[in-house]
Design a protein around this nucleic acid. Structure first.
Length: 488
RNA sequence: GCGCCUCUAGCUCAAUGGCAGAGCAACGGACUCUUAAUCCGCAGGUUCUGGGUUCGAGUCCCAGGGGGCGCACCA
């Protein structure tokens, strides 16, 4: 035991003023997982003569008179810590450690008579009290409201909560690593926007006092990232929060994380390849396989992914061929027949999308690229090179949900201006989610955007998939909640 | 925003309209090999809130609040 181990101090620690003698540092010699691997396979009732120092949280306590058993958990693993009146300094003090307290322990690595790898505490020190407790030791905390509000407790009590968030953090780190490998530069763009454009959604509004102007929390970073491409950054990406002032649901949090990526000189084809490679290799690293189970379905993420046009997807689901070019009345009839809405202002493009969402989307379980979207619903994508009325765009669907949206970026400033004007028309026609005009973005295009492929991946949804979680709140550390009533 | 479900001790849950309970946690005590749940003892409540029906409401009705699910909106 060296001088930083304050077991003699701790020996004076009583229950009343426990917190007062808490040290300012306590550096263990090993993480618990290291102890476990290093001393794996010992026979029962064995003493190694080797001392280790570990730190963690006492998550279970079993008192047995002059002997006491704890399960101490750190970031890496859990291990049994034993204390005995014969060997442990201030045994009574140690025995009063409660479930949830943080402790530092110095002791010999042994196995118990039952054979469990343990640390026989000699010195120990309280590192923090848990005054609140962790609730029922068998059932833990099951009230979702309490779980999300007190995530710091949830993470100790519900193994799955920890696992799902760990998958999230690892996924983001791995995406960054792989994009760096492909020479993409991670950039940052504004979150406070004078114009809420780049997507179709209702923004949050805020106000800047010194400038005396309203600003919008960004609904998408898209237009700024493309400005950077105009500025000469040829491969950029941003993983960051966007904000949409819409309903909260099992699949929607008001702030959510997207990866948006832009690569100069390539088209939507290249974005497809990048998508399937990136997602499958991230899955391989994060969950150890490209085959995953999501809500009971086995999903194979390995490339190549299935590809079909939006019309093909609809035709397949309907069992009869449909076409974007068929008369509007026929398309509208199909939409209503299949439970969709029809608005008199909608053209064939919106009708096709509505039909797709109603009949095809939820059936796309295995990874599927749906491509060739109508221009009407794609104001930022470049005109299709051969099909009038269409753009070069795809969305990737997995488990019946949109996961990726990508296109060959529209780089003709005149056409972009015209598309914004169309949106404006839809806005005045009552669609308050139509995209507003961003004149500076059009000006940027006038300086010249090279042919560029762009890609957006919903990180929360990707993580839901990898973690097999049905609810977005399970993969967001601190999901949006109403202000807490009756705080205690 | 609409519909359905739900709210009882710190936690997990009981209680045909008839005395609000159990297990765990806490607290006091016993126990030197335990593995969520050893034994003994003790304590713990505005049954989410406010109205109403009833001799009597945790239970039925109405309104409100929190939460969940579905729909709508969206990613």
């Amino acid at each position: 035991m060296d001088e930083t181990m304050s077991s003699t101090e701790s020996s004076t620690v009583g229950k009343i003023s426990r917190a007062k003698s808490i040290p300012y540092s306590f550096v263990g010699t090993k993480k618990i997982a290291e102890v476990r691997t290093e001393f794996d396979g010992l026979e029962q009732d064995h003493r190694t003569g080797v001392n280790v120092r570990i730190a963690g949280r006492a998550m279970l306590v079993r008192r047995q008179g002059k002997l006491c058993f704890f399960e101490v958990v750190d970031e890496t693993a859990r291990i049994q810590v034993m204390a005995s009146q014969a060997e442990t300094v201030d045994f009574d003090g140690f025995a009063s450690i409660a479930v949830g307290d943080w402790v530092g322990v110095d002791g010999e690595v042994i196995t118990s008579r039952r054979g469990e790898l343990s640390v026989m505490a000699q010195g120990w020190v309280l590192l923090a009290e848990n005054r609140r407790g962790f609730g029922d030791k068998w059932h833990g905390i099951s009230d979702p409201d309490v779980r999300y509000r007190r995530r710091y407790a949830d993470l100790w009590v519900n193994e799955r909560a920890r696992r799902s968030l760990a998958i999230r953090f690892k996924t983001v780190a791995e995406i960054r690593r792989q994009l760096a490998e492909r020479d993409f530069v991670e950039v940052e763009t504004p979150m406070l926007h004078p114009v809420a454009s780049g997507a179709m959604a209702k923004p949050f509004v805020t106000h800047h006092n010194a400038l005396d102007m309203d600003l919008y929390l960004r609904i998408a970073p898209e237009l700024y990232l493309k400005r950077l491409v105009v500025g000469g950054f040829e491969r950029v990406y941003e993983i960051g929060r966007s904000f949409r002032n819409e309903g909260i649901s099992p699949r929607h949090n008001p702030e959510f994380t997207m990866l948006e990526l832009y690569q100069a000189y390539v088209d939507v084809e290249e974005m497809m390849r990048l998508t399937e490679e990136l997602i499958s290799s991230v899955a391989q690293v994060v969950v150890g396989s490209t085959t995953i189970t999501y809500q009971g379905e086995t999903i194979d993420l390995s490339p190549p992914w299935r590809r079909l046009t939006m019309e093909e997807a609809v035709s397949e689901s309907l069992g009869s061929d449909i076409s974007f070019y068929m008369p509007r009345e026929e398309l509208a009839k199909l939409v209503t027949e299949h439970g969709g809405k029809v608005d008199s202002s909608w053209g064939n493009g919106k009708l096709l999308l509505e039909l797709f969402e109603n009949v095809a989307e939820s059936g796309l379980i295995q990874p599927t690229f749906v491509y060739d979207h109508p221009m009407e619903i794609s104001p930022l994508a470049r005109d299709h090179r051969s099909r009038p009325g269409f753009v070069e765009r795809f969305e990737a669907f997995v488990a019946g949900r949109e996961l990726v949206n990508a296109f060959s970026e529209l780089n003709d400033p005149d056409e972009q201006k015209r598309r914004f004007a169309d949106q404006l028309e839809q806005r005045t026609a009552g669609d308050d989610e139509a995209m507003p005009m961003d004149s500076d973005y059009v000006r940027a295009l006038e300086y010249g955007l090279p042919p560029t492929g762009g890609l957006g991946i919903g990180i929360d949804r990707l993580v839901m998939l990898l973690a097999d979680e049905a609810q977005i709140r399970e993969v967001v550390a601190f999901p949006a909640m109403r202000a807490e009533q009756n705080f205690e």
